[in-house]
Structure formats: structure tokens, C-alpha cells
């Protein structure tokens, strides 16, 4: 059971979280062509190593956040929340 560092609750067992995969960015829906949209839907970098991904603390604070995780070792760097209210944090 690896631990995921929730930026709000601290490290917790991964079973408390839902995994939402690699962070991607959504193309503007009006300008997009099918190839680009489906690239957004389906294509992943799937690296063997460090990647940035989105997790949701379903059994805890119910917040989404991003973490850097190494897919070979499962080492994790500290999490970063999305859209926090304090202006010092950057949302992504």
C-alpha cells in the first residue's frame, strides 16, 4: 500500500484516493479538430519514470490535487492542490 501525500491531510494510504491519471489539458471545444480532441481523450505519455498526475482524496478531504510520481519506484513528491483560495498558490 503506497502512500499518497494529500496536500490537505498529509500522507494517506493510496486506497483512500481515486486515481485520475496523467494531467492533461483540455482543448477549446470549438476550435478543435477530431485528431486533437482524441489525442486529449486517449493519448498518454505513459512514461517509465516521473510523471505528473491527478488524484482525488475520495475518503478524506474530497479534494483533487496533483502529484509527481515515479511509475517505476512509486516514489512520490509532495502534492499540490488545484485552485486553492489563497492567492499565493498557482492553480493549473
Amino acid at each position: 500500500m503506497i502512500r499518497i501525500p494529500c496536500p490537505n491531510c498529509g500522507p494517506r494510504n493510496s486506497s483512500e484516493f481515486s486515481y485520475f491519471g496523467e494531467l492533461g489539458s483540455r482543448p477549446a471545444p470549438d476550435a478543435v479538430d477530431p485528431a486533437h480532441w482524441r489525442h486529449y481523450l486517449y493519448d498518454k505519455k505513459n512514461p517509465a519514470g516521473w510523471t505528473t498526475e491527478k488524484w482525488y482524496h475520495a475518503s478524506g478531504c474530497r479534494k483533487f490535487f496533483a502529484i509527481e510520481r515515479n511509475t517505476l519506484t512509486n516514489d512520490v513528491k509532495s502534492g499540490r492542490p488545484f485552485g486553492v483560495e489563497s492567492s499565493s498558490e498557482e492553480s493549473s
Binding site: 493510496s14 486515481y19 491519471g21 505513459n46 517509465a48 510523471t51 498526475e53 511509475t71 517505476l72 519506484t73
Partner: peptide
């Protein structure tokens, strides 16, 4: 089923 998150471990 497969593990719940992507990994090469």
C-alpha cells in the same frame, strides 16, 4: 483486475 494506478512496478 489490474492495479488501480499506472505503474511499471
Amino acid at each position: 483486475s489490474t492495479d488501480p494506478y499506472a505503474s511499471y512496478s
